[in-house]
Amino acid sequence: MDPRFMWETLGKLVEGVPLLFQLVTVSLAIGFVLAVLVALARLSPLAPLSRAAAGYVFFFRGTPLLVQVFLIYYGLSQFPEIRASFLWPFLRQPYWCAILAFTLNTAAYGSEIIRGGIQSVPWGQIEAGRAAGMSGWLLMRRITLPIALRQALPAYGNEMILMVKATSLASIITLMEVTGIAHKIISETYRAVEVFVVAGSIYLLINFLLTRAVKQVEWWLSPHLRDAPGAAVKEEAALVH
């Protein structure tokens, strides 16, 4: 291990971080919207809708992301019909293929997390909403979804970390994010271990910060679960009773 070489490597690898962030944020943002829609479709009383959503989730959770990336990038371009279609300006670019694969993948996992959240909303809350005269979309928007999303946040935080790690696969379709640059440096220096150690540290740091951020958001979103000042005393008093 050569510290100077690793320091230089770090400088070069950091140049891949903006692309990594782009891939993560765009995929997660679109993926989240899609995830909510898929979760609602999955819970919908309309059988075809629910079945379609289940099929989508089944496919994307049952196959490795790597295969999905290859299927979208190399697979779709096999067909002249697709190359002639309006989609090609997007699918032509590795960047959008990566975004598409990551988005579809995270939406499948995300929808299951949100579905679990929706199903865990206490019945009493929904009943109270109904009693207050809410129904349908209003009830969903005001009562069910906020509680469900709060419930789903820790699991969704894990999904975000998985997404950060998943971006390393973008390197295999020619994108120059951190892992892609790592490969390039190795191709010039043949020093695989040192380069991968530095690259791994970058991902680790990003995920560490992300975990912290998610914890912070969880804390903000749950004032009702936090102990009020003096709560511990009250609790003890309750125990004595």
Partner: peptide, 19 residues
């Protein structure tokens, strides 16, 4: 657990393979 869950599996495999 923090390290192994925080870095991409691809890198773990590469590291083990080369190192």
């Amino acid at each position: 657990t923090t390290v192994l869950r925080g870095i991409p599996e691809l890198l773990v495999i590469y590291l083990l393979f080369f190192g």
